[in-house]
Nucleic acid binder design. Structure first.
Lengths: 338, 338
DNA sequence: TTGAAAGCGCTACCAG
DNA sequence: CTGGTAGCGCTTTCAA
């Protein structure tokens, strides 16, 4: 065993095997033009010294890292975990490693992560934006780093983007509630500056307008979700002279929080939400949701990215994937008489 | 804007600003000893050229990458997503990036990922083992790469390890079912070569033995879980002359699969399982589980890792975290008369 | 089939 | 306070 902290280099292997450094390089990289006997001898030295190629040096020389970066909001959220899984699968197929970072919805952190990845010279970047200005990426894109946006579009720059049709999804969900006989329907969204939150809110408004239904003053909540904000929003829309009989939630977090609040109070309200979660189908009643193709978003984004990395130079493309209503019961509770 | 694919280097910045390369280096790295006026001029050149330090070169020179690798089973699994989140938080605090790879329970892929990370010269590695031989890591450890194991211990080598007390956890869960009056209790585990599966199985056997209860021939299933295997195992243990009245599941996946099967058949069986999931508390009945401190496992592993990276040379340490029984209802269904 | 030399972009070390 | 030089470990290029 070598001394602690040491690391054999190609040079070490070369002198151990009695060949030139370049010959070792050829063997390590499986390049042709090495006599089998020589290759054999080199391989033995490699094994004996425990040599492992230093990819840092390789990267420096070649300019390609065979790695991509993924900036998302929170790797602990099931939605993003699924997205990561899909991205990782595609990356693995391309022989690429995946570096992940969570922005926590903080624009500064998104930027710091993206630039840190660029400093490592990742071949490409998939970003779920938290920032409202992506011009900071222009020098990077100009220098040849491929960038694809997922879940939300870029701001102030153009790039390949993969989105869910959020307006249409929310429209379908809310329309479903309306068809169930509801006329007073609440919407619990997220911070209004978040693209998906804004679009789903729009889908809600469109559906209400299409059915010629008014929207009461206390029926909409657009705030970063936590137990407190969702709870009080729900209490507000369920009380007063015009209580809602159904609620549509803007994402998996608000849905779960609303669910907990409704369980606590025992209110019999129809509930549907954007995003599906693993156990939603086992609840009583099971959750009616508008489901995104989470894996498909990640897969598509990764494939667009590798197309760019592969040299594709076409104009920026935006892929919009459909969301689909899954009827399970919670959204089919009829409106209370009145 | 520079030509496509170009990238200004320190040398470019230096000549642009009319200073020596080393001065640029000082400014970029915030080193002292540069006159404010000079620094200002350099900063302007940096901004103007869109310069960004090439960390590949930096890494090559310094030997430290400020990045760690995490090899786990599947980033899409909520358990590992939570673990990642905790690891990433600690890494961020140490200014380190996180490279993640999913082994899919394949020893070859675990090894390939770990070695790929080492080739990138990550400063350290957190591994959730799929392999039963980690001697391949010896040259890496010898060369100074810190390695910590999480969720499952290393095989044939020694290293810091963070585990849950799986035997005790399963023992407590099964004992709880026994206290509820059950005498015939089934166990649905995972592939027996998986450490956690084996230990939880042991905890089950211990609990049965401690209560002097026999274990029927068809009461235990140790197989990689899918709807088919769990379904048939469950049908087997619920039929025949000695049907179980309660089932303990070995992890979140088997629990969910069993839950679905029981819903499908409508069998009234007490059910408890290892691992908690987000919506388990909202089911009817809510799931009684033995919960691990998932975030704590990740946090502890990451902290042990950075202690090693920081130069700590003490003997390998094994931290065992407790699992705690959460009583919610599904495990308190009394045994059917008979 | 093999080898020698140049240099990727940066930091460490020593001069001025 | 500033600059030059060496060299991290590898690949590229060209020569033998």
């Amino acid at each position: 065993m070598t001394m602690y902290g040491s690391r054999p280099t190609m040079k070490d292997v070369a002198s151990h095997a009695g060949v030139a450094l370049k010959t070792v390089s050829r063997v390590v990289n499986g390049e042709p033009g090495v006599k089998p006997r020589t290759a054999e001898r080199v391989s033995r030295s490699i094994a004996e010294l425990g040599y492992r190629r230093n990819d840092s040096a390789r990267v420096l020389r070649k300019g390609k890292t065979a790695s991509i970066g993924l900036v998302l909001e929170d790797i602990g959220d099931p939605f993003y975990a699924m997205l990561s899984r899909a991205v990782e699968a595609v990356a693995a197929r391309h022989g690429s490693l995946l570096i992940t970072g969570s922005s926590g919805e903080d624009p500064g952190r998104e930027r710091a992560l993206a630039l840190a990845f660029c400093a490592r010279r990742v071949d490409g970047l998939i970003i779920v934006p938290a920032s409202d200005d992506h011009t900071y990426l222009l020098p990077e894109i100009d220098a040849g780093i491929a960038v694809v946006f997922a879940d939300r579009p870029p701001r102030l720059i153009e790039a390949d983007t993969v989105l869910t049709d959020n307006v249409r999804g929310a429209f379908d969900g809310v329309t479903h509630l309306i068809r169930g006989g509801h006329r007073r329907i609440g919407f619990i969204g997220d911070a209004p500056h978040i693209y998906t939150a804004a679009h789903r809110h729009q889908g809600y408004l469109d559906a209400m307008a299409a059915a010629a239904l008014p929207v009461g003053g206390s029926w909409v909540s657009m705030a970063a979700p936590d137990a407190g904000s969702v709870g009080s929003a729900l209490r507000r829309m369920l009380s007063g002279p015009e209580p809602v009989t159904a609620v549509f939630c803007g994402n998996n977090r608000t849905t779960v929080l609303a669910l907990r609040e409704l369980r606590r109070t025992g209110a019999a309200v129809a509930l549907a939400g954007f995003d599906d979660l693993e156990l939603f189908d086992l609840l009583t009643p099971a959750m009616t949701v508008v489901a995104q193709s989470t894996g498909e978003i990640g897969r598509t984004a990764a494939e667009l990215l590798f197309r760019r990395i592969g040299g594709y130079m076409g104009p920026a493309e935006c892929v919009e994937l459909p969301a689909s209503l899954i009827v399970r019961g919670s959204g089919e509770i009829p409106p209370a008489s009145g």
